[in-house]
């Protein structure tokens, strides 16, 4: 087992290193931003004019970055997750997206967990009370997808605290 150790640096060297990292980051963001601006200039010159007259241009830049990300998001998959819906991409994903998110948010799927029978009960409940249509041959495909990708995890009577964001408490 070998581990890469961080070399001992003097405070001055640390500072220089931090500066280099910071500048590289700025360069990357700036390049991305210039591409976005160039694209928008071609497609919507009036909007761009207005944006740069506004005094909160950094907030605008932020917003546009979000906006541009969202535009491509319907086809964007990162680490097996379809970014626009948050759903796991696997066999049955298309059927789930088409049948379920027509009426409700995909968040209702991704935050829930159940076995096949549990998901089937939810579908029956939606059919009986919420006007969900007969899913036909898609039902089995959807149930297989949900039971595999959104299965329950045994947590006992009480879970450990998770996702703790540590911070220094000042007085």
């Amino acid at each position: 087992m070998s581990e890469i150790e961080k070399p001992d640096l003097t405070p001055e060297q640390e500072q220089i290193l931090a500066q280099v990292v910071r500048r590289t980051n700025i360069l990357v963001y700036a390049t991305g931003f210039i591409v976005v601006v160039a694209l928008l200039n071609i497609m919507a010159p009036q909007t761009m004019e207005r944006l740069f007259q506004a005094d909160t241009s950094s907030a605008n830049a932020d917003s546009l970055m979000v906006a541009m990300e969202s535009t491509i998001s319907d086809t964007l998959v990162v680490d097996g997750i379809h970014m626009a819906t948050g759903l796991i991409v696997d066999d049955g994903f298309e059927q789930v997206k088409a049948s379920c998110t027509a009426c409700h948010s995909s968040k209702l799927i991704t935050q829930n967990k159940a076995d096949r029978d549990g998901w089937k009960k939810m579908i029956r409940w939606m059919q009986e009370t919420q006007n969900l249509w007969d899913l036909g041959p898609n039902e089995d495909i959807i149930l297989d997808y949900l039971a595999k990708n959104y299965a329950p995890v045994a947590t006992g009577r009480r879970m450990n605290l998770t996702n703790i964001e540590w911070y220094t408490l000042e007085d």
Binding site: A59, D62, S63, M65
Partner: peptide, 25 residues
């Protein structure tokens, strides 16, 4: 992550103004 919060901060402070700043709306 920081850049993703921008649009919401902008909208939470003054949504109508945000419309104008972001979209010219």
């Amino acid at each position: 992550m920081k850049k993703k919060i921008g649009i919401h901060q902008l909208y939470s402070e003054d949504p109508v103004k945000a419309d104008e700043l972001v979209w010219g709306r």
